[in-house]
Design a protein around this nucleic acid. Structure first.
Lengths: 355, 355
DNA sequence: TTGTACGCGTTATCAG
DNA sequence: CTGATAACGCGTACAA
């Protein structure tokens, strides 16, 4: 049997060539199919009120007859706007930022925006690159968790791309949503001390990160409020493996700590690993509190006490703040929103009665 | 002292108006500043060989004198290409997909692409919407973890946007990277049985998800290889809370299970919660294995045995496969890559000697 | 090697 | 209410 090829409609009466592909339909294709002008198609598709319902109908039909999909690129070029938000965070693998990302995408999506995800890995160079990409992509706005206090966002300002900084403030004045790291850290450490732990240590992040420093300061404040307590501090890189190393060193000191305040969730896991190596039992041999509530924290043995940050809401609010400032292009003064973390006492920080 | 305002260069000799904003520099601005044609600027900036080094130099200077940033939108419209990949996954909160996302972004970034992140929440409607958005954004390609076997990607095909399907295959023939779920599930369940657990249950995902079904089939296969063992099955929604509910029901049956094979990490946590409620101790009262290695799994008490998927490599390979097919626009036959998971035996699945 | 002119697909302006 | 037309910013064929 001979095959029976279906007839193919070709634009502009071109001849079919071997391997020729049907061109993607444009607004013009639709216009021809509907017997109207491209302008009318545009109006019909965008719900412009000044257009006859009958034409709208005809255009709609024609549009999905030819399988038309609006070209967002062309639209963006013409309107000079984009429906995309860039999200720059250190690491999507950190559950805190995973939750933030979820918050940002949820809020963005609700208003028709999509999210460009960029991991900066606490690397200033990567951060710069991603910022440049975001600028060239003409994203509508940027949600940024900056690597340090001096990240340069002047280019974004020039391009009039609004920025909301999260988690860590910038030296420069910008919209920002931050969490009271100092207060959270102090509360956690005080709690440890109140429980009777006598040598609480702090495992914090790199000194470049504002949150790492704030959490360390909170720890110090609590320590100083109780005379006679030593400060035992280690800086790690906010990552699990780094914390294991740091904790080992602390544990190898002549006078090792008997409790830990750890500055984020991945490092909490890393510290727990070091503890396990030494057969130190959390909640009896050592006290333990970490920053950031992770899904697994309640299910550890014993359950881990944490300073919980409102990560998802933080992401949502950041995105909303951004989109709000998109609607009001007028220069407002920067808004700074400060959220409070919550100390959730589970069992890891509790000290059993001496026996 | 009078302030001494710096002179402002204005394009096209416009008068300064109150509140006037400097227009973002374009290739034209640079051309004027450098005293060459826009075409030369374009060529210089894109490293076109046929252009005098001296001009290149002059253009470069002019470019950053006026603070020029290429407009990616315009470039995309002109070249009909984009450097963005859309990533559609059920939930970035699931550590498996977090790792996949990290893999995709890492590989994409290495070749100058960026990643559009979309959560589908196992919702066909959301999936459709995101697919449409990706199409309109004219993304270069799509990495998709489809909600079901019948997700419609014909529109993408028409638009000649390549798709790599991950984790779950489509009925349709496409590039795909999957993991041997059946084999992994069977190995996990067999291991449980070998350890002497006599009533292993399976908590799997929604029947719509291919992986949920494959893992269930793997469980069943193992059960049937050992006569006399009952099949105890619950379907949940791949989420933590859903699994808690499902596990409770299983536990409330007259003949409750004495071991669990759980189909992903969030549900593992949910199941552990139900177990904890009943004071059932994992590794002594009940056996436990779950799919997906999570960062916390080794640090639970006891450490959780898992079927580890190569999540990060999977993401990397998906992105690379996509970008490869971007380079070879010729129609190749679909590639299907199958990765093997690894059973990692820790303590949760081990059965203590009867005593 | 360089410049001119056109088109990528849309939307906005301006007549009719 | 509708249609021509210009412009968004860039890359490239073509001409010089």
């Amino acid at each position: 049997m001979r095959s029976n090829p279906a007839p193919v409609v070709r634009a502009r009466g071109e001849m079919a060539t071997v391997g020729e592909v049907t061109p993607t339909p444009t607004i013009k294709t639709v216009a021809e199919a509907a017997g109207v002008s491209p302008a009318s198609v545009s109006r019909a598709l965008n719900g412009n009120p000044s257009i006859a319902p009958e034409i709208v109908e005809r255009v709609m039909r024609a549009a999905d007859a030819v399988g038309y999909r609006p070209n967002g690129i062309a639209r963006s070029l013409r309107t000079r706007t984009t429906k995309v938000i860039a999200l720059l965070i250190p690491d999507i693998g950190n559950p805190f930022f995973t939750a933030v990302a979820r918050g940002v995408t949820d809020a963005a999506e609700a208003e028709g925006y999509t999210v460009l995800l960029c991991n900066t890995d606490e690397d200033p160079e990567k951060e710069r690159r991603h910022l440049a990409v975001a600028e060239q992509a003409r994203v509508a706005g940027v949600v940024l968790s900056p690597q340090g206090r001096d990240t340069d966002i002047s280019r974004l300002r020039q391009s009039r791309i609004p920025v909301v900084v999260i988690d860590r403030p910038l030296r420069e004045k910008t919209d920002a949503i931050v969490v009271r790291s100092f207060a959270g850290a102090r509360a956690a450490t005080s709690h440890l001390i109140d429980q009777g732990w006598s040598r609480p240590a702090c495992v914090t992040g790199p000194a470049s990160a504002d949150t790492a420093r704030a959490r360390l300061r909170g720890y110090r404040a609590a320590i100083r409020e109780h005379s006679g307590l030593p400060e035992i501090v280690a800086h790690a890189d906010f990552r699990q493996e780094g914390a294991t190393l740091a904790a080992r060193e602390l544990l190898d000191q002549p006078d090792p700590p008997d409790a830990f305040f750890v500055a984020n969730a991945p490092m909490a896991l890393g510290t727990l690993a070091a503890l396990a190596e030494r057969n130190l039992r959390v909640g009896s041999d050592v006290g333990f509190v970490s920053f950031d509530d992770a899904p697994w924290a309640p299910y550890m043995t014993p359950p881990i006490s944490v300073v919980a940050q409102p990560a998802h809401p933080l992401g949502e609010r950041a995105a909303r703040l951004l989109m709000e400032s998109l609607r009001t292009p007028t220069e407002r003064r920067p808004r700074r929103i400060t959220l409070s973390p919550t100390l959730i006492v589970r069992a890891s920080s509790l000290r059993p009665p001496r026996g």
